[in-house]
Design a protein around this nucleic acid. Structure first.
Lengths: 108, 108
DNA sequence: ATTCTATTTGGCTAGTTAGCCAAATAATGA
DNA sequence: TCATTATTTGGCTAACTAGCCAAATAGAAT
């Protein structure tokens, strides 16, 4: 594993780490339906707004979402559109339980 | 967000958390080429074998890999075949930098 | 049974993260 | 300007994770 590869894996890890939290996954799911402001998301996750804001900062920092301020609200948009597809695959895998093969293969 | 949803996001998070480490991502990449034993992986990542073993345990626990003992070696196999595809998408996203759209969209 | 090789597990420390509250910042409107 | 609403940031503690070493476990070969 050379330097270039290390960097690649660290970069990937950063994105996955950002995604690897239930609340943030909920946010990603919600944003896959369209942009939402912080207050909308806060109401949905029922946590302190500062907590939600920090979760959004983590996602933004990992380039998973982007933000746009309009008036005194900040709207967040999902950037990583392949996420829902991947989650579907992950869930499929888990449902299959202990099977050896799964139909979620995407290698030619 | 109801109980069922919470569980769903926790389940997803578990898998993503398992993936969210440079060394484990390297392992996943390597296993995408075929099964490997612990000693092979250990040599490649140049870390203590106990560390590698623990990383593999994390991946196994999240159903990302499965293991099979043959002789006195343990061979690990990748189960989550959609991972490489997803990583490709993630990297694409990061290369695009700050663009609004990216071609990695997989929603019809 | 003993030794060798491969792997896992326990235990420890240092570093990271989550989530709350309080305070700061920013836009809006009176 | 001052108050109101929306959001971010700082600070703190509790919980979790990585990675090393040492010890335990397991199969193979002598």
């Amino acid at each position: 594993m050379n330097q270039k590869d290390s960097t690649r894996y660290e970069t990937r890890a950063k994105v996955l780490k950002a995604l690897a939290h239930p609340t943030r996954l909920f946010i990603v799911d919600e944003l896959s339906k369209g942009e939402r402001c912080v207050c909308e998301l806060t109401e949905m996750v029922r946590a302190d707004i500062s907590t939600v804001s920090k979760h959004l900062a983590v996602l933004k920092n990992a380039h998973v979402v982007s933000d746009e301020k309009r008036g005194n609200q900040v709207f967040y948009t999902l950037r990583i559109h392949c996420a829902p597809e991947f989650f579907r695959c992950v869930e499929h895998l888990l449902e299959e339980g202990s099977r050896e093969t799964n139909p979620c293969t995407s290698q030619g």
